[in-house]
Simulated scan of single mutants.
Amino acid sequence: MSASGAFGPAPPGIDLSQNQNGQIFGAVITLMVIGTIAVIMRFIARRTPNSMSLAVDDYLIVAALVGHTFIL
């Protein structure tokens, strides 16, 4: 059973009525983990000896990461 999308009929072999929640959640969780690791690595790099101290942008990036996590 093939549904029609908002931009016309679906390409052959694509079923628009199929549930794709697992694939969507997998992509979202993967990108959230990558983003969290990037923020952690930023803090590690900032806290090593002879490096810069924490600034306002460091705190804002944590606030954005936490805010984005709770929006989902």
Score class of each variant (00 low, 15 high):
Val28Asp: 03
Leu16Cys: 03
Gln23Pro: 00
Thr69Gln: 11
Leu16Glu: 04
Phe25Gln: 10
Asn50Gly: 05
Arg46Ser: 15
Asn21Arg: 03
Gln20Leu: 12
Phe70Ile: 13
Met32Phe: 09
Leu65Lys: 02
Gly26Arg: 09
Gly5His: 06
Gly26Asn: 14
Pro11Cys: 10
Asn21Trp: 01
Asp57Ile: 06
Ala55Gly: 14
Ser2Val: 14
Leu72Gly: 09
Arg42Asn: 13
Ile29Phe: 09
Gln23Val: 13
Gly35Phe: 03
Gly13Gln: 04
Asn19His: 08
Ala6Trp: 03
Pro9Lys: 14
Thr69Asn: 04
Pro49Ile: 00
Pro9Thr: 13
Leu31Pro: 00
Ile37Val: 15
Asn19Trp: 02
Ser2Gly: 14
Met1Gly: 14
Thr48Gln: 15
Leu72Tyr: 09
Gly5Tyr: 06
Asp57Trp: 05
Ile34Met: 04
Asp58Ile: 06
Leu16Tyr: 07
Ala45Leu: 04
Asn21Lys: 01
Met32Thr: 01
Ile61Thr: 03
Leu16Met: 08
Val39Pro: 01
Asn19Phe: 06
Leu54Ser: 08
Asp58Cys: 06
Ala63Lys: 05
Ser4Ile: 12
Gly8Val: 07
Ser51Thr: 12
Leu60Met: 14
Ser2Lys: 15
Ile14Gly: 04
Ala45Trp: 02
Pro49Gln: 00
Gly22Lys: 10
Thr36Trp: 03
Thr30Phe: 11
Arg47Gly: 08
Ser53Glu: 13
Met1Val: 11
Asp15Lys: 12
Met52Gly: 08
Ile14Ser: 05
Ile61Val: 06
Ile61Gln: 07
Gly13Ala: 05
Met1Ala: 14
Ile37Ala: 11
Phe7Ile: 08
Ala27Val: 13
Gly8Lys: 08
Ile24His: 04
Ile40Ser: 01
Leu65Glu: 02
Ser53Phe: 07
Gly35Val: 01
Arg46Asn: 13
Leu60Gln: 15
Val56Thr: 11
Asp57Tyr: 06
Ser17Cys: 00
Val66Phe: 08
Phe7Gly: 02
Val33Leu: 12
Ser17Pro: 00
Ile34Trp: 01
Gly8His: 07
Met1Leu: 12
Ser2Leu: 12
Leu31His: 11
Ala55Ser: 15
